[in-house]
């Protein structure tokens, strides 16, 4: 019973099948030296792209850079100083205010709990369902898929009241789990569809091969399919982590009775007054809150998205 199929092997099988889809699966007999020459020539040509990409990206992120440097400016300089990046007069007052007014110290742990709970729920539920739905012969599949796509187009923004009543009814209204479920559930459509799209692109031969090796349905999913789906998982985690991290309305509504459970997204709103806004404090808060997202982004990009590419290459 050697049912363990390595991701690499699975990817290879996927590659072959996909080659058939593409319709031109030539025999892979590459003369090595030629290929290497071509590769290095290409690498040289790729270098020219930096001439375009560096200035392009600088202009692209200029507003973002302005936001970060504004966090070090005085309110006068931010509002009256125009569009220059470099502060004339550096100040850390804004970060101090972000820490006290925005309660960023208290709220960071809550936000982490909330965001991780949301992401775990979504990846678990969506990958299971996506795998099941990628089986084209599953009875009831059409109905579920149809409902998901239709639901995608009905705006959810103003339906908080029924959700609130439901969470109240099952007694989860005063904790972050209720909020996490309320945040995760409506956002399930896209992850499910992504997993369905990915799993249905993987040829049946692969899962059949696993079954011949004695792996059951669950095991095929867990040991073969889920590891293969890393690029999708990475993307789902990234997008929903960010969504949950910045989420405002749901964490607010679900922590009404316990404000100490609020998240950064809610804390950010402490900078908005009825008439005026503390713009530099907001910029400082936004800059603090963005750091974890950048870390998550780089981590997922390297370990997940690039990881699968490596497996396929070999």
């Amino acid at each position: 019973m050697s049912a363990l199929i390595t991701p690499g092997a699975g990817a290879q099988a996927g590659a072959d099948a996909a080659a058939q889809v593409a319709g031109d699966a030539g025999p892979p007999t590459q003369p090595r030296p030629r290929a290497r020459n071509r590769v290095s020539g290409q690498a040289r040509r790729m270098r020219w792209w930096h001439l375009f990409l560096i200035p392009f990206c600088f202009i692209w992120i200029y507003p973002f850079l302005w936001m970060v440097t504004a966090a070090f400016k005085t309110p006068q300089e931010m509002l009256l100083g125009g569009i220059g990046l470099w502060p004339n007069e550096w100040t850390l007052d804004n970060f101090v205010r972000a820490w006290t007014t925005g309660r960023f110290g208290d709220y960071t742990l809550n936000t982490l709990t909330f965001a991780i709970a949301v992401v775990v729920i979504q990846v678990l539920v969506a990958s299971l369902a996506g795998y099941a739905l990628s089986e084209k012969t599953l009875p009831g599949r059409k109905i579920v898929m149809g409902v998901l796509v239709v639901a995608m187009f009905i705006p959810h923004g103003y339906t908080i009241i029924p959700v609130f009543q439901l969470v109240n009814a099952i007694g989860l209204q005063d904790g972050l789990l209720g909020a996490a479920i309320a945040q995760a559930a409506p956002g399930l459509v896209v992850p499910v569809l992504l997993y369905v799209g990915f799993f249905s692109g993987i040829p049946n031969e692969l899962s059949e091969a696993a079954r011949v090796d004695g792996a059951g349905y669950l095991r095929t999913f867990r040991s073969v399919m889920l590891p293969l789906a890393k690029p999708v998982t990475g993307t789902v985690v990234l997008m929903n982590f960010i969504g949950a991290w910045n989420s405002f309305f749901i964490p607010l509504v679900f922590t009404l009775g316990r404000p100490e459970l609020r998240t950064l997204g809610v804390g950010m709103y402490n900078f908005f007054g009825t008439d005026t806004t503390d713009w530099t404090g907001l910029a400082a808060g936004a800059s603090i809150a963005i750091i974890p997202i950048v870390i998550v982004f780089l981590f997922l990009q390297r370990s997940f998205v690039e990881g699968i590419a490596g497996a396929v290459k070999s």
């Binding site: 742990l109 809550n110 982490l112 709990t113 991780i116 709970a117 989860l172 209204q173 005063d174 904790g175 972050l176 789990l177 209720g178 996490a180 316990r258 459970l261």
Partner: peptide, 11 residues
Amino acid sequence: VMATAGCNLVG
């Protein structure tokens, strides 16, 4: 994080 914040999850 989840463990320390566990009580926050269910309230």
